[in-house]
Structure formats: structure tokens, C-alpha cells
């Protein structure tokens, strides 16, 4: 009897994973995971984690504007991309033209974008199903469509085409701008390209991970990978592995076990588990302690 129940349960799990929306979500995870993992190493190296948080918050405003001007409330990409790109460019421009420290400025912009986005969304909530707010904030695999996959694929191709040849230049520009300049790097241009990269991937990931949590998936897998690695190769590779695993497990576990949590939340909780484990390993195992010298 017990065996039969187990067989039934396994069969049900198989059915659940065959739903079209689950397959869409897994395709998204296969794209998002490695991409955010790799980009996250740059975010950590350049100490830009809160920048992506600010852009994530700006996406809320983008959604609000989209609904107001009549875009589809499930995929208001034109408004989201337009507003977030403007927001990111303005933030970076202000950072370059004031003497304010980056964290202060990003903090100010982050608060403004959250206040603006939350106000606008509550203002328009009468027009849309309020459930959409939860989807935007924390992600939902149920709403991932072929359009979302297409947008994500285009963004992924752009990021790979731009990010791979410019990786060294962007990293060197953040480590020592004067040295990078002598090496022929256009430092300010690299900064703008990097913030645009973060912005477009953040917007493309809002549907599946959620506006509030995209930053976490840029940061946590990279932070977990940093705990274990001493070289850039291992850092990038493990960050990609942690990020991909977090996406796949975060999407499939709630489905398989019928746990009613948003996909974004589940993905970040899995990533956080990786971070916890690697932090313990770093603290307890001597081979990971070199960086503390």
C-alpha cells in the first residue's frame, strides 16, 4: 500500500513538471541562472549590489507607468525598460557629477524608486488584480509566457556579446581607473555599459524572480562562490553553478511538493542555503581560509 502511494506521488510529480508553464519557467531558469551568476561576480567585485536593488525597485514604477498608459499588466516591458534605463543612466550620471559617495547616492535613489513605485502601484491597484503586485514583487512562474522567454533570450545574447569582450576592462576600471585609462579603457563608458547590463537583466528577470529579489540572485550566489574560491575562474564558475541550482531547485521544489510560495522567494531561499553552507565551510575548513591572512 505504501509503495503504491509513493508511486502515485511520483507520478503526480512527473505530471506537475510536464505543465507548459513549468517548462517555460525551467527554460528561464537555464538562461537566468548562469547569466546572473556570472554577472553577480562583477557586481560583488564592483560593490554594486545595492545598485541592482535600486533598479529592481525602479521596475515597480515601470510596471505602474505601463498599466497607466495601457500596456499589458502582465508584461509591461516597454515601460519597465524605458523607465529603468532612464533611472539607471540618471543615477550613474549623478554619481559621476557629484562628490557624493556611491552608497549614499544609491541609497537615496533606492528610497526614491521604492516610494515612487509603491505609491504608483497602490494608486493603480484598483485597475488590476492586486495579486499582480505580489507577482511583481516576488515573482511567479505561473505568469511566464513565451514573450518573457523571448525577451530574456534577447537580453542574454546582448549581455554575452557585450560582457565577455569587456569583462576585463570593466573590472580593471573599477579596481584602478587611472591604470585602466592608461591601458586604453574608457572608464566612464565602461561604467555606463555595466549599469545598463545590470538594468536590462534586472528588468528581464522581474517576472520570474520578482523586482525585490533580483538583486539577491545577483549577490548571494556570487557571495557563496567567493567563500570557496581563490581564483577568478572558480569564482565565476561556482557562482554560475550556485545561481543555476538555486533557480532550478527554487522552481521545482515548490511544484513537486505543492508548497504555496512564490518562485522568487523559493529561489532566494535556496541560494541563501548555499551561502550558509559555504560560509560554514569557510569558517570551519582550513583550506578555505587563505583570504583571511
Amino acid at each position: 500500500m505504501g509503495m503504491e502511494a509513493l508511486q502515485m506521488e511520483l507520478q503526480m510529480m512527473g505530471y506537475r513538471l510536464n505543465y507548459a508553464f513549468v517548462i517555460n519557467a525551467i527554460i528561464c531558469a537555464l538562461i537566468i541562472g548562469p547569466l546572473l551568476g556570472a554577472l553577480g561576480t562583477m557586481v560583488v567585485a564592483k560593490r554594486m549590489a545595492f545598485f541592482s536593488q535600486a533598479v529592481g525597485n525602479a521596475a515597480l514604477t515601470g510596471v505602474g507607468i505601463g498599466v497607466l498608459i495601457g500596456e499589458s499588466y502582465t508584461s509591461p516591458y516597454v515601460s519597465m525598460f524605458s523607465f529603468c534605463i532612464l533611472f539607471a543612466l540618471l543615477l550613474n550620471f549623478t554619481r559621476n557629477h557629484t562628490k557624493m559617495s556611491s552608497d549614499t547616492l544609491i541609497g537615496v535613489f533606492l528610497s526614491i524608486s521604492l516610494a515612487l513605485g509603491a505609491s504608483l502601484l497602490l494608486f493603480i491597484s484598483a485597475k488590476v488584480n492586486t495579486h499582480i503586485l505580489q507577482t511583481i514583487l516576488f515573482g511567479s512562474i505561473l505568469t511566464v509566457s513565451k514573450t518573457d522567454i523571448a525577451v530574456l533570450s534577447v537580453v542574454a545574447i546582448i549581455l554575452l556579446a557585450v560582457g565577455i569582450p569587456l569583462f576585463n576592462k570593466m573590472l580593471l576600471a573599477s579596481l584602478n581607473p587611472a591604470l585602466a585609462h592608461v591601458r586604453g579603457v574608457r572608464v566612464q563608458l565602461m561604467e555606463y555599459i555595466f549599469v545598463l547590463m545590470i538594468t536590462i537583466i534586472t528588468v528581464a528577470c522581474v517576472k520570474i524572480i520578482g523586482a525585490v529579489l533580483v538583486e539577491a540572485l545577483l549577490l548571494i550566489p556570487a557571495a557563496a562562490a567567493r567563500n570557496l574560491n581563490k581564483s577568478l575562474g572558480g569564482f565565476v564558475l561556482w557562482s554560475m553553478i550556485f545561481s543555476l541550482s538555486s533557480c532550478l531547485l527554487g522552481i521545482t521544489i515548490p511544484m513537486l511538493f505543492d508548497i504555496p510560495v512564490p518562485s522568487g522567494g523559493a529561489i532566494i531561499l535556496v541560494a541563501a542555503t548555499f551561502f550558509l553552507i559555504t560560509s560554514l565551510m569557510r569558517g570551519l575548513l582550513p583550506q578555505f581560509k587563505e583570504a583571511k591572512i
Binding site: T41, V44, A45, R47, I164, P165, F167, N168, L171, L172, L175, L179, R183, A225, R226, N229, K230, S231, L232, G233, G234, F235, V236, L237, A291
Partner: peptide, 22 residues
């Protein structure tokens, strides 16, 4: 950042080549 996993060779690669240092 002293905890950033970048080796001496990674740094040299970053400065001299276009292929990503990783």
C-alpha cells in the same frame, strides 16, 4: 577588496588580454 578571489595571474590577465581573466 582583500576577500575578492583574484590571483596574481588573474590580475595580470586582466591588464594584458581581452579574453576574460576568468
Amino acid at each position: 577588496d582583500r576577500f575578492l578571489p583574484v590571483t596574481v595571474n588573474n590580475f595580470m590577465a586582466m591588464t594584458v588580454q581581452t579574453t576574460p581573466a576568468f
